[in-house]
Amino acid sequence: MDKVRIIEVKESIFADNNKEADRLRAELKEEKTFLLNLMSSPGSGKTTVLMRTIEALKEQLKIGVMEADIDSAVDAEKIATTGVKSIQLHTGGMCHLDAAMTEQGLKELGTRDLDLVVLENVGNLVCPAEFDTGAVKNAMILSVPEGHDKPLKYPLIFTVCDVLIINKIDVLPYFDFDLDKVKEYAHRRNPNLKIFPVSAKTGEGMEAWTQWLKEQVNAWNQTV
């Protein structure tokens, strides 16, 4: 009988993905393209926030959008009405995007002349948080009807994100949503998290968010 040989590997299964993500970020830096990974649960208003963001910035930045979904092209069709370049990525049943899938999407989109690419990740607070996509910044949207306890229930996503957008603040009077509590819980998991309460519907708070994003994009794309 053949002898069994053991090969020791001892590495995180995310190691390859993290390497690919770092390489992708370096390439984007060369190309002067800023990639934003936008995550949230389904129905938080991700596409609406994105459309308002595009409307505010499209005169100043060349923007592209990648819509990731398990199926359908409804989001990409909506984004296309803003006039920016957009493509739909299908994950084929998977709940998240990794760096290799993101890179494929970026190639298809064509990023050479773009300042900002937004990746709208699959609506989910669990899995997208575990895979580095190669994005420069990670943002997440939490909407008022979801409740202020989400940072306690889904701690990882609040840890990996740079920005938390709290959407639908126009309906705050109708929900038991405590804005101070959510900030406290989120900062407990991530003291550096930037928080922007907004209403994509009324436009309240949107300027602070888009201003921040524009500054980040310009800082990243500046020649050193």
Binding site: R5, I6, I7, E8, V9, K10, S12
Partner: peptide, 11 residues
């Protein structure tokens, strides 16, 4: 929190 590939056995 680990998901590590520890080792591979080959016959």
């Amino acid at each position: 929190n680990e998901i590590n590939l520890k080792e591979i056995a080959v016959c």
